[in-house]
Every structure is written in C-alpha cells, then in structure tokens.
Amino acid sequence: MIRGLYTSGWSMLANTRKLDVITNNMANVNTTAYKKDTVVFESFPSVLTKRINDTRSPLNPSGNIGSMQLSSDVGEVYTYYTQGQLAQTGSKLDFAIKDDGSNIDTSPAFFTIGVMDEGGNNNSINEYYTKDGSFTINANNQLVTKEGYFVLGEKGPVTLSSAEFTVNEKGEILQNGEIVDKLRIAQFSDAAKLRKFGNNLIQNTDSEAVDFTGSVVQGYTEQSNVNVVDEMVDMITVMRAYEASQKVLQAQDSSLEKTVTEVGVVR
C-alpha cells in the first residue's frame, strides 16, 4: 500500500512537470520563432527498498524488503524545431531562415549570435544560436538582437557603414552594391544535442555542423510553431491524468488510515 502511495505521488509530479511545459508553450505562442517543447515519459527504474535501522531479524539481517517501481518519470524534454509560418513585416531589419523542407526538424539552421562573457578576463564572445531574426541596429552601427546581443557574420559582429543595406538568400550583406559581410548561418546534424539557453537562444552541446541548405529571407520573421488547440487538448489530458492519480492516492491513504486505526482493535 505504501508503494502505491509512492507510485501515485510520483505520477502526479511527472504530470505537473508536463503541465509546466505546456503552460510555457502557450505563454510563448506569440514569441518570434519560439520552438515548442514536449515531455517524454519513461519507465522509472526499479529501486531497492530496505528497512532503516532494523537489521536484527535473523532471517533477513540485511534489512532488504525488495524492489519497488515508481510508475513513470520525465525522461527528457524534447524540442520540435519544425518551421513556423513566415510573416511578412516589410522591415529590412527582420530576417527569417527558410528551410528547404527536407529535414527541418532533425537538422535545423540558425542565426549565429555572440554574447559577451562578462565574467571572462578578456570579455570574450560566446556563440549561441537563434531562429529569431527580428534584429535592430545599435549606436555603433552593429546588427544586434532585441536583447543587444551581436549578430555574427564571417568577419565577427556585423558592422554596417549605414542603415541602408540588403541581404540576399545566401545571407550576404550588400551595401552600395558590394558584399560587406555574410551572416553566419549554422545548421546542425542532430537537433537532439541542442539545448535551450534562454532569451530565445539555443546552445550546441555536441552536434556536428553541416552545410546550410536553406535560404535567408529579408523582410520576414518566423512565427512560433506552437498550436494553441493542440496545447489545450494536451493540458486537459494531463489534468485528467493528474486528477486520476490524486484520487487513487486519496483512496490508498483512506485504506491505510483504516488499517492503522481499526485492524487489530479488540472489541
């Protein structure tokens, strides 16, 4: 019966984690180029249970009771990198990466972003990646994100001589008819090795870079790939699963209470 309490309680914790992920998806439905997450459940491994401070039994001096399996647990939070709809803005500072459609979920492409390492001795730039191409220009005529992070080109942070420029489908930046730099578009072979860092940035843990197969579109931004209806359906399903585990836990708790207070009572 105690094992049943643990199993029901752990299932409630796992569903709470999934509900948090769904809530975060819905909160970012209007975030430019946000990529939805989903929770993958896995069977919780069996754990050995034993009596604490009770090894005096000659038949079982080890105190081991046996193994116990606590239902399912959160195995991983998987991110879908499928492309969202491209929305036309008309702004020359807005960009989107148009994938070729062959492997947009398993081998996504990103803009390369430089974030200053404030804690480092030389203020070095750390590389991150984003699908959010809604950029702006800072006081130094550098192309930056809305948070002020550098947009990186082949020559480092993209620096413009004026606000008049165009970017072709290869990511080449042209001013006065000349190529002054090229956006660094990073495409990776294994999306499973990418991790969300925060501020709509992606961190590469160990995925190999491959040749960019898509194209860059100026005057467009990529929308979130979250479907609100699907998230609402998932939320209802998770809530029902949580409530079912809660009722089972309450029933077991009631039975345990009767066992403790009534069984063995001499009348």
Score class of each variant (00 low, 15 high):
207 S>I: 12
201 L>C: 09
74 V>G: 03
118 E>G: 04
172 E>M: 13
159 T>S: 12
243 E>H: 07
204 N>M: 13
123 N>D: 03
225 N>A: 09
31 T>H: 07
116 M>S: 05
106 T>G: 07
207 S>M: 13
211 D>M: 10
106 T>K: 12
198 G>P: 09
170 K>E: 14
257 E>N: 11
56 R>F: 14
180 V>I: 15
256 L>R: 02
112 T>Q: 10
222 E>D: 08
38 T>W: 01
101 G>Q: 06
169 E>N: 14
215 S>V: 02
38 T>Y: 06
118 E>M: 13
128 Y>P: 01
40 V>Y: 00
197 F>D: 01
87 A>Q: 12
7 T>R: 09
251 A>R: 04
149 Y>R: 07
193 K>H: 03
134 S>H: 09
114 G>I: 11
6 Y>C: 07
12 M>L: 14
3 R>T: 07
267 R>S: 11
28 N>V: 13
85 Q>P: 02
114 G>C: 07
135 F>H: 06
2 I>S: 12
127 E>G: 00
60 N>W: 08
69 Q>M: 13
22 I>Y: 08
3 R>Q: 12
224 S>A: 15
200 N>I: 05
50 K>W: 13
156 G>W: 01
218 Q>Y: 08
43 S>R: 13
267 R>P: 06
13 L>T: 05
111 F>A: 01
259 T>M: 15
90 G>A: 10
187 Q>M: 14
209 A>P: 15
125 I>N: 01
219 G>I: 13
25 N>I: 05
176 N>F: 03
202 I>P: 01
245 S>P: 03
157 P>I: 11
245 S>L: 05
85 Q>S: 09
172 E>W: 15
224 S>Q: 03
32 T>L: 05
205 T>H: 06
227 N>T: 04
184 R>D: 08
256 L>I: 15
60 N>F: 05
2 I>M: 11
193 K>V: 03
171 G>Y: 03
110 F>V: 11
27 A>L: 12
101 G>W: 11
122 N>Y: 02
195 R>S: 12
257 E>G: 02
174 L>K: 04
123 N>Y: 11
